[in-house]
Simulated assay, not measured.
Amino acid sequence: MVVALVAILLLTSLGWWLSHATAWGRQLGMTMVVLLLGLVVTNVTGWQPDQKAASWINGPLTSLAIAQLLLAVDLRRLWPDARRLLTPFLVSVVLTVLAVLLGALVLGPLLGEQRSVLAGVFTATFTGGSLNFVSVARTLQPPDSLLLVATAADHVVFAIWFAISLWIGQRWSRAEAAGSIEPNSDKPQPAGAVGLALLWGLAVLLAAQAVSVVLAAVPSILVLTTLALLAAQLPGGSSRRGCYEQGLLLIQPFFTVVGLSSPVAGLLGEGLPVLVYAAWIVTLQAVALLLLRRWRRWPLGETLVASQAAIGGPSTALALATSLKRSELALPAVAIGLLGYLFGTYLGLIASAVVLSPTGV
């Protein structure tokens, strides 16, 4: 585990250096660079971090990053920004379901008997993230071999769409982002400010873990975001001045792990139909949403973040918003993404039942 953690952090550090020291790295941004580094390493060498190391990165470290990012959020701006995300998010969910059902019909001969299970898990994960994937998979109980391939396809397609969303957003939504307000400047923070910001994040994280023990039925991310939000409204905002920059840095290992968990080679054999099905779903959703966005004149940044809230869930939507320097969308991205937690599992089970039904697709 220690070796894997060191390797992940070294890759992330290399991504940080490349994103600051090279022209192409500055153009892509740190998140895109570390994601690409992870993809290259795992697909060239075949190395992947062990489950314990990945779980530590995706668990406590990413939770601390989320707490830090939300500690810089002004609650008074929540509703206006969340309202702009709601419509494209709901449209993303509807488009995902339609793409799943249409794909099950068109690709049915390739998918065979497993198409109902795949329809269920892909509907779940692409309307709210991996938490829904796990919930539906536990209910449908697919074979381990199918679950492994579906998980890999989910990671690969998500990673590609996140990278494309980041590239599109950085290239074409700069004019929209020009009016956004960053909670902090890019100037280096004094050591004392950095320490205080870290203490705020750790305090929120520890408090959230304690509350989650008592409220075991409440999703832990909901507890974490609620406490971080409340703390962000407390007096003493100057002591939280460095939270945003810290959170943005701490969330980068998560994307290194996403890249390292996306081996394409293993999907190009027997898993190819599953990869094609996942790519079909996300591609149709993305293309249709961007076309509707042009017709309805939705802001590009909001549309991309809303799509990410459906495809990847609240954590990745938050990461996309902050990577696009749209800090005002950070909390609304989480709030909208949590909606996917509420109904994504049900949609997955319904889609699986529809595909399985003799009168269905």
Rank of each mutant, 00 (worst) to 15 (best):
V34N: 01
A317N: 07
L64G: 04
L331Q: 05
V136K: 01
A288L: 06
L196D: 13
W295C: 09
I281M: 01
T87G: 04
N58I: 03
A4K: 12
P88C: 11
V361N: 07
L131G: 15
A351H: 04
W17I: 15
G128R: 00
S92D: 06
E176I: 05
I160Y: 05
N184M: 15
T151Y: 11
I168E: 05
R138M: 13
S180M: 14
N132C: 07
A278K: 00
C243M: 04
G340T: 04
T96P: 06
A210T: 10
L111N: 08
S238M: 14
A207R: 00
V274D: 01
T87D: 05
G129Y: 11
Y244F: 12
T316L: 12
G38H: 02
A317V: 10
Q252K: 08
W295E: 09
A333I: 01
A4P: 12
A23C: 05
G313H: 00
Q68H: 14
L11G: 09
V3Y: 09
G169T: 12
S145E: 11
T151F: 07
I281G: 00
T45P: 07
V121Q: 03
V223H: 02
W161Y: 08
V274M: 02
L39A: 05
G59E: 09
G108H: 04
R26W: 07
E245K: 14
L275S: 04
A7Y: 01
V73C: 12
L260V: 08
R26Q: 10
K325S: 13
E245D: 14
L291Q: 09
P60L: 10
L342I: 15
P299S: 03
L349Q: 14
A207F: 01
V6C: 02
V156M: 07
A306E: 12
A288G: 00
G103K: 00
R241Q: 15
A216M: 03
S130N: 05
P263L: 03
L229N: 08
P358I: 08
A104E: 04
G195T: 08
P190S: 02
T127H: 00
R138W: 10
Q209R: 14
T316M: 12
A82R: 01
I66N: 01
G195Y: 11
A191W: 14
E176T: 07
L199M: 11
V3N: 12
L324T: 07
L71A: 02
R77K: 07
I164A: 15
F89L: 09
